[in-house]
Design a protein around this nucleic acid. Structure first.
Lengths: 403, 403
DNA sequence: GCCATTTCGTCAGGGCTATTTACAAATTAG
DNA sequence: CTAATTTGTAAATAGCCCTGACGAAATGGC
């Protein structure tokens, strides 16, 4: 009952201002203390003491004097450290594994990936293979003077609220897998999240600027059709963390029965399996023939580029059904933009005509449709950036656990 | 580009802690300084100085010594003042006007209402009639020692981002009406909001406790079918403030054409007009025959109670279509609960069977369906409470404008 | 080259906020 | 009546940011 208000102690104030300094440098680029003070509205004096702490913690670094040509003493340029903490991101795909490391400046400093038939496999060998990749990347960035502050794992499924367990990953066949007990968590504190969520966050942080200016619905099809709702710079997760299941929004009143228990779900008409079936392929065979992230989409895109009429018709139909589902979502959320990520970004050229037609027909003025430029890399980059974000948000780690 | 972080000054800290004290008393009930300190995690000393300011501002009042029976010196009980600021709420319905005043304790101290055929009327006479009600309520509470801190107006339509204009109210026939220039704003700073939003906020603040514990979708049909998304104790408004238009979510791929430009919209099957037509009535005639808030719903409920087969069938169908739309919304938002407010609350007994059947069939486990106990009073009470909330949130008015 | 001007970073002093410590006041338990 | 407990306040302290002032380091005009 008691709505305990987050109360603000002086430490909270300090923490926020430390974060404000870091974000001023992260978003606005390297700058002197005086310029940072102008950006965030504090005095030079206050910024100086904040910067002292951040230099001591190894989060900021001085990069010499800045020559601007303007009169006045030049300031010492402050930049985010490229030898301080970094974030490790990992991705468990249906048929591949990937790991990368990102420094505070947002640069990818190391990455590794392998094909891996994870569908239907027991978790242990998959996690062991992934742990080997993590070790490789970890050693590489450690040699470069970085120290990983955490490891976030992108999972194609539902993740528990404490971010430690995979509750359910239908496309892997996993249920209730604890990620923290295995060898994965050996190098850095581990947290997990849904890949669609991380893909959307990547878009928010390093993707199209339109995502930073309002509420956005980020649609990201891989095997299923997921989505993520970004509102006010944050992710809407829902009660159990299951929000964004666009693939199971009904688009036909009496349609195909779906594995989710419903019928007429969007996924039955615009999902990868539906597309493959519509062009006369067996989904299971196709996955075996074209393994790897985005391989089926690339295959379909290839056929579409050659004008294959079956593929073109299938994509046209998928665009229309996607348009129906997104009409409903737009009425509910009134988003600032709709972003197509993952496989949808690759297939966008052939989906967009019927999709935009359906949206404008039903909505009059549809929100702008943006195609992600991160594509299949979104979830992996989002995972790594999620870690560096926790460092920037609470620079001196006065908080307890990484968010 | 520069994501300007809200920086925290000492004044911000103070403001938050002042608000924390007020909410500790508002949510947890009257209590001594020491007990408040325990509730919000500050020291007794700090709470004492905060309370001093709040007493001086007339927001808190000392209510004698508390006798608990436990050993130790009894504390002086602090309660929210019932003679300090209050909130004025007003409602512009299609066929009625209402105003009420709520004190900081949440009690309704005065109210007034009249039937008024507003549909199709020019704004000026309507606003003049409403202003007369406001004056009556204002004088009444002023005589009781309260001073109104603001007036919030609930409008059945879309409100501009600055909360001063009605952008569009189709059921009134209004477009671009400035509310602040008329006689309405004479007594207190005026802001407007959508009635569905305010109904949902009322549910959050004074309604079912389930709304306070997670994300909630609040459905409130009056003439149209609106909804509001509560996430993390706040309202999701969307890009233009149009979020929550549940009535225009498609439930039929090729259905009736709707005034919104779409087709197969939920409102065509579960809206008030559709229900009236389904039982053989002309919607316009029915509104004339049964004016007033909730009158058509009450009429339909009356016939349903007598077992009228046409009405029962119509409500069954509406429940099913509502279930389809809410299935999609649940997949997108994963809400903690679905709340039925407004006319839906009255008709709930006959809607719920087919609605829950559709939801459980499609979702497996549906979120709990809660029937609002505020009913038609929601928007009006929400409007008044919205004002008192701005007082509690920033007790000493260091901020500029009321939110 | 020299000096005025401008900007940068830091130091000293002060104000605001909450905490610590201490203490008087008011109640219950025995 | 005394011991124990709890309440509210006062004084001193620590943390954080601001104001004002100052030396340092650049540019521009002479």
């Amino acid at each position: 009952m008691t709505t305990t208000r987050r109360l603000h102690t002086q430490q909270d104030m300090r923490r926020r201002n430390l974060a404000a300094v870091l974000y001023a440098v992260a978003d606005g680029g390297p700058a002197s203390r005086a310029r940072v003070a102008d950006r965030i509205g504090l005095t030079r004096t206050a910024v100086s003491t904040l910067v002292d702490d951040l230099l001591a913690a190894g989060l900021l670094a001085e990069a010499g004097l800045g020559h601007s040509g303007a009169p006045g003493r030049p300031g010492t340029v402050l930049a985010l450290s490229d030898r301080g903490p970094c974030g490790l991101g990992a991705e468990i795909g249906v048929d591949h594994l990937a790991v990368c490391a990102v420094d505070l400046r947002g640069r990818v400093r190391a990455r590794a990936a392998v094909d891996s038939a994870n569908r239907g496999s027991a978790p242990e060998p998959v996690l062991a293979r992934l742990a080997a990749l993590v070790t490789r990347v970890h050693d590489e960035v450690t040699a470069a003077g970085l120290h990983p502050a955490g490891l976030r794992v992108a999972v194609p499924g539902l993740v528990s609220r404490d971010r430690a367990h995979v509750v359910q990953a239908p496309n892997l066949g996993w249920r209730d897998v604890d990620l923290t007990t295995g060898p994965l968590a050996a190098h850095a504190p581990l947290t997990a999240d849904n890949e669609a969520n991380l893909g959307a966050l990547a878009e928010l942080w390093i993707g199209d600027p339109v995502c930073r200016t309002g509420d956005v619905l980020h649609i990201s099809a891989e095997i299923g059709i997921g989505s993520a709702i970004l509102t006010d710079g944050r992710l809407l997760r829902g009660n159990r963390g299951f929000a964004g299941e666009l693939g199971h929004v009904p688009v036909r009143r009496r349609g195909e029965n779906c594995a989710c228990g419903g019928r007429g779900c969007l996924e039955q008409y615009a999902g990868e399996a539906a597309l493959l079936r519509a062009v006369g392929l067996d989904p299971a065979r196709a996955v075996a023939d074209h393994p790897g992230p985005g391989a089926r989409s690339a295959y379909l895109a290839g056929r579409a580029e050659h004008g294959d009429p079956d593929v073109l018709r299938a994509l046209r139909g998928a665009g229309t059904d996607l348009g129906i589902a997104l009409t409903g979502a737009t009425h509910l959320l009134d988003p600032h933009a709709l972003v197509l990520g993952g496989a949808l970004a690759v297939l966008a050229p052939w989906l967009l005509p019927s999709l935009t037609a359906e949206l404008t027909r039903r909505l009059g003025t549809a929100p702008p449709l943006v195609v992600s430029r991160l594509g299949a890399d979104g979830p992996l980059l989002g995972a790594a950036h999620a870690v560096t974000r926790t460092v920037l948000d609470d620079p001196l780690r006065t908080g307890t656990a990484p968010g």
